[in-house]
């Protein structure tokens, strides 16, 4: 009884600080608030406005383009790295540290470093041209159609190590008996991984996917540091849209509407995740 009682403050804090704030944001999104919160019901006006804004469409679409590529590539590279480490190669600890290192850096540092690397006049392109390949071009960072892929490159560099570490732990927990059984049956290693080991690790993979999806939805620093949303607003993401409108553009209503749509997206993802889990249990 006492124990439950002791939990009350933290539950309250959570309820008010977390869910209260969420609810407040949703409420504000239905008002005509601009520089200060004003409780004047405006119906769906903010949402209508949001959907007429080209910048919001670009930002929202980018979240899916960036998200899908970021999650897929991080998973592929992470899993491949984990499998490579699993081959008991020499210098495994050193390699693990090297690949895990990027995750220790913040997205801001990652973004700045990759901005320098990919900047056509100071980075990679300039360097390769300096070596004598005059026609070499890698200017994705300044191309509105491709800049979003540079975010993926930087993001994957940052996150693949984490996936590797989690997957490597997962691979280590696979019972040696299963491998022995595979060898007895003469199953090739690749088939073993593809058909048996990785499917066994599905829960671990789902954890990775969830962690990465959170990164995608809250990703703000990476864009700010690397492209500033540009060229134009071609690499804008919803989180940046919200922050810009909430603080610099003092448009609380519009920002809240955008934040509410982000929240809705997260809820859909969570439902999907829950459904996947249930499917697994049902089988």
């Amino acid at each position: 009884m006492m124990a439950r009682f002791a939990l009350v403050p933290s539950i309250l804090l959570c309820a008010i600080g977390f869910y209260g704030a969420m609810l407040w944001t949703v409420v504000i999104s239905f008002t005509s608030s601009t520089i200060t919160p004003r409780y004047e019901f405006a119906g769906l006006a903010q949402y209508v406005r949001l959907f007429t804004m080209d910048r919001w469409h670009v930002a929202y679409t980018n979240m899916f383009v960036f998200g899908a590529l970021y999650i897929a590539c991080s998973l592929i590279f992470g899993v491949l790295l984990a499998i490579a480490l699993d081959q008991s190669i020499r210098g495994r600890n050193l390699l693990q540290t090297i690949f895990l290192y990027p995750i220790a850096l913040s997205f801001i540092v990652t973004g700045l470093a990759w901005q320098w690397l990919l900047n056509p006049t100071t980075g990679l392109q300039n360097y390769v041209r300096g070596l004598g390949f005059e026609s070499f071009a890698f200017d994705w960072l300044s191309s509105p159609d491709r800049a979003v892929y540079t975010l993926v490159i930087a993001g994957v560099w940052h996150a693949a190590g984490l996936v590797m570490a989690i997957m490597y732990a997962g691979l280590g927990s696979v019972d040696g008996e299963i491998w022995r059984a595979g060898r007895v049956d003469g199953i090739p290693r690749t088939t073993m991984y593809r058909r048996i080991i990785l499917p066994m690790l599905k829960p671990v993979i789902i954890v990775c996917v969830v962690l990465l999806s959170m990164d995608v939805i809250k990703s703000y620093e990476l864009v700010v540091a690397m492209t500033g949303g540009g060229p134009g607003y071609s690499t804008d993401l919803p989180a940046k849209f919200v922050v810009d409108n909430l603080f610099t553009r003092t448009n609380i209503g519009l920002a809240s509407a955008a934040a509410t749509l982000m929240l809705a997206s997260i809820i859909v993802l969570l439902l999907l995740f829950g459904w996947l889990q249930k499917e697994r249990v049902a089988r």
């Binding site: 080209d54 910048r55 134009g232 610099t248």
Partner: peptide, 14 residues
């Protein structure tokens, strides 16, 4: 002012 900035950066790039 922010909307004009958006317009100009898009115009510049696109």
């Amino acid at each position: 002012g922010g909307q004009i900035e958006d317009l100009l950066s898009r115009f510049w790039a696109d």
